[in-house]
Simulated scan of single mutants.
Amino acid sequence: MSSLSSAELPARPHRLPHLSSPWLGFAVRRLIGLAAVFVSLLVVSFLIVQLIPGDPAAGIAGANADSADIARVRVELGLDRPLGQRFLDYAGNVLSGHLGTSFMYRQPVETIVFNRLPFTATIALAGIVIVLLVSIPLGMTVGVLTQGGRRGWLDTVFGVITGFLDAIPGYIMASFLVVMFAVGIGVVPLYPPAYTPRFGAQSFILPVASIVIGPICTVARVVRRETAVVLDQDYTRTARGWRLPALKRYVKWTLPNILTTTLTLSGLILTGMIGGAIVIESVFALPGLGSGIIKAILDRDYPVIQGMVIVIGMIAALVHLLVDVLLGLIDRRTLGGSHVSA
């Protein structure tokens, strides 16, 4: 049988190695997703202020202003232009990095937003870290202790307590903590002492506590269930049969398999915590984005409302992106690429 010469052999398809990387496809999809979120926020933030009743020009002109004064203010604010032209101007300003100028304060919106952002970001980010650091070990511990139906009483008590605390809305939890620990026991001062900054670290203790209790219970329940499922798998039973150290079994094999499902759900929960932080800071009178957006709505300060909606929405999108990156680092199959290298 004659053999084919090298010239007659079929050419192997040339594959660009960088195109087969799952991280490349992941990055492209996420960038497209972030762009879609940004465009959606741009449209929604512009249209939503049109639904607010009242004329901001009348409020800025004052109670004694006549129709001529109101018309002059409308021209100054650009409210006399057609809706389409206003949207194009608004989109152009945002794309250039300028969120507009406040109707009430005559300051750049980005200055107002970023002066308030640290308060909201501190509550939300501290809450996210605490939820993950507390709920995952708590859920795993209960799952290990109740493995195989053991300690049924612990499983029942854990379910009842976490279910009850998870059902309490954040603003009610915040009011309860204020009454108990600030007004009643006095362990945490409601307001910092006179010799400390107005908004020191202790000003965030109760706000962070009230925003994390519910999510901790939710995530811990999910982790407990996933722990029970993973511990019942063949590979964990085999590792236990080999009498490997318990810490190694739980950290090396159990934890990564739990995190895949847990982080997927936690991404939604943690994003919701950003909205919860906006409500909680209003209860504690913190000058964050929550109180800022409420005041802007009452003042009909359209640019401030639009700027805060965009910033909050993009922060939520970035939290989702961070969760997806963590999932990709834990399990590359979650990247959704067509080729996953071993």
Score class of each variant (00 low, 15 high):
residue 27 A to C: 14
residue 137 P to D: 06
residue 76 E to R: 06
residue 17 P to K: 09
residue 126 A to I: 15
residue 161 I to R: 13
residue 27 A to K: 10
residue 306 Q to P: 10
residue 31 L to T: 09
residue 94 V to D: 02
residue 192 P to N: 05
residue 97 G to S: 12
residue 51 L to I: 10
residue 284 F to D: 00
residue 112 I to Y: 03
residue 190 L to F: 00
residue 54 G to T: 01
residue 277 A to N: 07
residue 250 Y to T: 09
residue 29 R to I: 07
residue 333 R to F: 11
residue 140 M to V: 05
residue 81 R to K: 10
residue 172 I to R: 01
residue 302 Y to P: 14
residue 155 D to W: 08
residue 234 D to V: 06
residue 342 A to I: 12
residue 193 P to I: 03
residue 238 T to F: 05
residue 152 G to N: 03
residue 71 A to L: 14
residue 202 Q to M: 14
residue 173 M to T: 11
residue 216 I to K: 00
residue 286 L to I: 02
residue 249 R to E: 11
residue 24 L to Q: 04
residue 272 G to W: 02
residue 131 V to R: 09
residue 183 V to Q: 03
residue 38 F to R: 06
residue 235 Y to P: 08
residue 233 Q to G: 08
residue 225 R to H: 13
residue 14 H to E: 15
residue 282 S to M: 04
residue 108 P to D: 13
residue 290 G to R: 02
residue 99 L to Q: 00
residue 328 G to R: 10
residue 7 A to G: 09
residue 109 V to Q: 03
residue 55 D to G: 03
residue 93 N to G: 10
residue 329 L to R: 07
residue 100 G to I: 01
residue 341 S to K: 15
residue 26 F to L: 01
residue 194 A to P: 08
residue 187 V to K: 00
residue 72 R to T: 14
residue 265 L to C: 08
residue 26 F to Q: 02
residue 98 H to T: 11
